[in-house]
Nucleic acid binder design. Structure first.
Lengths: 131, 131
DNA sequence: ATTGACATTAACGTTAACGTAAACTAGAAT
DNA sequence: ATTCTAGTTTACGTTAACGTTAATGTCAAT
C-alpha cells in the first residue's frame, strides 16, 4: 500500500500526453507529490482524480468548470453552513448534468428517426428490386 | 407557407450571435438563400438545421463532426449501396452518442454518491447539535 | 560511470470557434 | 428624404487546451 505512478504511467493508461497532465496541474486540477530529484509522483488518489477530470472533459465541461466542481467536493467542509452550501451547489451541478443527458437523448432520438427513414427507403428499393 | 427568418431572428431565438450563424455557413453547415439586396434569408428547414447543429454542439461534437453527420443525412442517396453505407455510418454515430450518454450517467452517479456522503455528514452534525 | 529512457521548466506555436471593429449597404419607419 | 436599425464583407483579435521544441536534469540498468 504505497502504490505510486510516474507521469508517463498515467499518460499511457489514459492515453493522453504528459503535457496534458502537467497542464491540468498548472490549472490547479491535480497536485502530485515530488521525488527527491524533483520528479512528479502520483498517488492512487491522484489517479482517481485524473479519471474524474477526463470524465468531465468527455462530455464537454471546461477545465474551469471541472476545477470548480472538484475543488468544491474537495475541501474539508466541516461547518454546517458550509456543508449546506456545498450540497446546494452539488445539486445544481447534478441538475446541469441531468439536463445535458436529456438533451443528448433527444438528439439520439432525432438521429434514430432519421435512420428509420433511410431504412424504410432501403426496404422500398429492395421491394422494387424483386418485382 | 413561405415562412422565412432574418439572421437576427434566428440569433435571438437561439440566443447566439449573428457572427456564429455566419460562421456556420462559412464552414458549410447551413445554406440560406438571399434577398434581392443580398441579405440572408432562412427557411424553416434552415431553422431546423440550425437547431440540430446547436444540439450537436451542446454535447461536445465539433463543427467538423456535425458537418459530417448533417451532410451525410442530407444527400439524396437514392442508390441502394449508398443507402446501406449511410445507414452503417448512422448506426456508428448513434452508438457514439449512446456511449457518451453512458459516460455521463456514470459521472452523474459519481457526483450523486459524493453528495450522499456530504448529506450524511450533515445529518451527523445535526445529530450532535441536538444533544 | 556511462548510457538511454524518461523527467523538468520555459516559452513560443497552433487550432477551433467565435468576438470585434471598420467601412459600407439595405430596408423599415417617420 | 432622411434617419435608424439591421444587414454585408474583410480582416484582425481572443481564448482554451493543449503541441512542440530546446536546453537540461534524473533514474535505472548495465
Amino acid at each position: 500500500m504505497e502504490q505510486t505512478y510516474t507521469i508517463s504511467d498515467l499518460a499511457h493508461e489514459f492515453d493522453i500526453s504528459t503535457r496534458t497532465i502537467r497542464y491540468y496541474e498548472e490549472r490547479g486540477l491535480i497536485h502530485p507529490g515530488r521525488t527527491e530529484g524533483g520528479q512528479r509522483t502520483y498517488s492512487r488518489k491522484d489517479r482517481t482524480r485524473l479519471r474524474l477530470i477526463l470524465r468531465g472533459k468527455r462530455f464537454g465541461f471546461s477545465l474551469e468548470e471541472i476545477a470548480e466542481m472538484i475543488n468544491m467536493f474537495d475541501q474539508d467542509r466541516s461547518g454546517k453552513k458550509q456543508l449546506e452550501v456545498t450540497i446546494q451547489y452539488g445539486r445544481k451541478k447534478i441538475k446541469e448534468v441531468d439536463d445535458k443527458i436529456q438533451d443528448m437523448i433527444a438528439l439520439r432520438d432525432e438521429m434514430e428517426s432519421l435512420l428509420q427513414d433511410f431504412q424504410s427507403r432501403l426496404k422500398q428499393i429492395k421491394g422494387e428490386e424483386s418485382r
